[in-house]
Design a protein around this nucleic acid. Structure first.
Lengths: 164, 164
DNA sequence: CGGAATCCTGCCTGATACTG
DNA sequence: CAGTATCAGGCAGGATTCCG
């Protein structure tokens, strides 16, 4: 209800004849895209990665996922619950206590997501190096571009000075 | 330069005494989080998933990634290039031609992301079922809540009518 | 404690126009 | 073709408040 199910039937002119490479339905209204957009959400990813077998309470999650607002945590958890990835258990105590844990389905996704986290941990140095290199390159190009612009402006000035 | 490069080296003051479960640095300024936030972006994910060995031109990508604005495609590609995941090749022809392809590093990430896409394809039926079930449940609860509210309002009305 | 409701800001997006 | 630039608008997301 409310969100990602039926949408603008975004018809997709899509591909024509390049089936040489594996492809999948990339249309926006495609089921896989819908799910992927949810799963590829940074908060969802973190929550699932943190729910490693052990169930966590709302506030525990809030503390562990640094930077998340309670609004987004609530939304994220509702989405994950709706998708059958997380089970929400309310204990009718006072003060209230709500536990979140992965469902079996969520656990299978957890494995995949852990792989992503592991990849990140493994390659973070390479990425940092790539970023540094890129930034240097870009800074150089910008300096050159500025010089180029200045040169042209000088030409333009001398021209307009020639015939006022 | 500017964003997430050299920072808090992975040690995590974080938790106090719950090391029972595997944990990693979840702080917002953590290197891994920075990368993860980028990788977990829906557009990045799609682009990497589509760049399967074969290089693609800008417009090819634009057509394949249904729903992306050219602004976001440009941004996404720049980010991926900066992170060393995608190589951008400009052919000085006319009209211009720019090819994008995965770097070796990007290819390793591609494997992980394909796993995510495959997971989605495999479990989309289960998720659809979970969503349907959830929506039914929620609709029921809402109907009950509305009835409850109405009942209380009636009581309130009869009370205020009793002593005006 | 675990939310729901409200307000408000900022970014994404879409459209358009202009370069090279 | 492959962008960059700019502007309007809409909605995601943060901060705050209040309730069971």
């Amino acid at each position: 209800m409310e969100d990602g199910t039926s949408k603008s039937l975004g018809y997709c002119p899509d591909t024509d004849a390049d089936y040489d490479v594996l492809q999948w339905d990339t249309r926006e209204d495609c089921e896989v895209r819908q799910i992927l957009d949810r799963v590829a959400d940074k908060w969802s990813l973190l929550v699932i990665a943190l729910l490693d077998r052990r169930s966590l309470r709302f506030t525990e999650l809030r503390r562990k996922v640094d930077g998340i607002s309670q609004r987004m945590l609530t939304r994220t958890l509702r989405h994950l619950e709706r998708d059958g990835l997380v089970r929400r258990t309310v204990h009718p105590t006072v003060p209230p206590r709500v536990d979140y844990e992965l469902t079996p389905l969520g656990a299978t996704l957890h494995d995949t997501i852990r792989a992503l986290v592991t990849w990140t941990e493994t390659h973070q140095n390479e990425i940092a190096a790539a970023r540094a290199a890129y930034d240097v390159r870009t800074a150089d190009e910008q300096r050159q571009a500025e010089q180029e612009t200045e040169r042209r402006e000088q030409i333009a000035r001398s021209v307009s000075a020639g015939r006022p």
